[in-house]
């Protein structure tokens, strides 16, 4: 069994945070999901080093950090190519590599794309907060002391599994300066005029530099509303396209607010979210309408679902936070569990 090791941050650069698959089950409490912005690249990096699903990694933004490994380990980079060097020698993004104790891994500016994920066998082992190791910057929660990494931080790495998971699914990142993003209309499309809806799907928008893990502000033609875009606050998801008073869309991303009071003209489909995660300011975006039926009811979609279904476990109860079960309910749940045993 590999010994647990540590990683020292020599220079964090723009924004390096600890992220995992996300913090689920707390939207109703006002706590957003966070997690890796590019879930595909994140998933791939974990698979390359043989980690289980959901192990924490480092998310590096625009210009990656310099890190010293205190102990040897298998590591992998996925996502944007940041011209990584291990003690000065080039390291390929998208392949696992071995790091000797004391070696320095240095990342540079991303050539194409914006975010790179560093996975280490065993995973970044910061303590879990509410079931996740993801950093929620706004709430200063999770990750490394609830904040972005700083020089001098020393990150714990978990013990690597003796038999690493050998299954690596393919990953083909797309970096483009003009993205076609697919959206399912609504939930408040009716707040906009026909001309406004036409504007949204018929125009080209540009990603502005006012973009971060919470959201991406777009520049372009103003979307016309029927009677303004104020609504009574309701739930937001990763991918919601909100149109505030300005009439310019904001794409809400991993650190989105849990609820908002502006109408949402559409929602980006989950398959296209990694494209948004890798977009840089100046990227052009056009939106294409797709229906939920096309996504889930076509023969191809059904076949994919059936395949998944065979692998799926039997239905589980909702992951319900314990604190929600009060008194007798807790007892009942316990009794129900016993019955199942």
């Amino acid at each position: 069994m590999n010994k647990a090791i540590e990683i020292e941050v020599l220079s964090p650069e723009v924004l390096t945070t600890v992220q995992d698959a996300g913090r689920f089950g707390y939207l109703a409490d006002g706590i957003t999901e966070s997690g890796a912005m590019d879930q595909e690249a994140y998933r791939f990096a974990n698979e390359l080093v043989g980690n289980r699903d959901g192990e924490a990694e480092l998310e590096c933004t625009m210009k990656g950090p310099a890190l010293r490994f205190l102990g040897s380990a298998t590591a992998a980079l996925a996502g944007a190519d940041m011209d990584a060097r291990l003690d000065g020698r080039p390291v390929k993004t998208g392949e696992a590599f071995w790091v000797e104790s004391g070696q320095v891994l240095e990342l540079h500016m991303a050539g194409k794309g914006l975010r790179t994920y560093l996975a280490v066998a065993g995973g970044i082992a910061v303590p879990k907060v509410l079931g996740s190791r993801s950093t929620n910057l706004k709430c200063r929660m999770g990750g490394f002391s609830g904040r972005a990494l700083l020089a001098g931080d020393v990150l714990p790495v978990g013990a690597a599994k003796e038999t690493p998971q050998g299954f690596v699914r393919p990953y083909h990142p797309v970096f483009s300066d003009h993205l076609v993003i697919h959206c399912i209309p609504g939930p408040q499309e009716e707040a906009f005029t026909e001309a406004g809806i036409e504007t949204f799907y018929g125009s080209t928008y540009t990603m502005t530099s006012e973009s971060d893990r919470m959201g991406m502000r777009l520049a372009g033609p103003v979307i016309e509303t029927r009677h303004g875009s104020d609504i009574i606050s309701d739930g937001i998801v990763f991918g919601s396209v909100q149109v505030p008073k300005s009439g310019l869309p904001i794409l809400l991303l991993a650190d989105h607010q849990t609820a908002g009071g502006y109408a949402k003209i559409a929602t980006v489909i989950s398959r296209d979210l990694p494209l948004l995660a890798q977009a840089v300011p100046g990227t052009k975006l056009t939106f294409e309408r797709v229906s939920i039926e096309e996504m889930q009811e076509t023969p191809k979609a059904q076949k994919a679902a059936e395949k998944q279904d065979r692998r799926a476990k039997k239905p589980e109860a909702l992951p319900r936070p314990l604190h929600e079960l009060r008194g007798w309910q807790r007892f009942r749940t316990f009794r129900e569990r016993r019955k199942k045993w």
Binding site: I184, G186, P187, G235, V237, S240, K264, T267, I292
Partner: peptide, 11 residues
């Protein structure tokens, strides 16, 4: 109505 391909809104 759908809110993307992973959520449903009951309004």
């Amino acid at each position: 109505c759908p809110e993307g391909d992973r959520a449903l809104l009951v309004d």
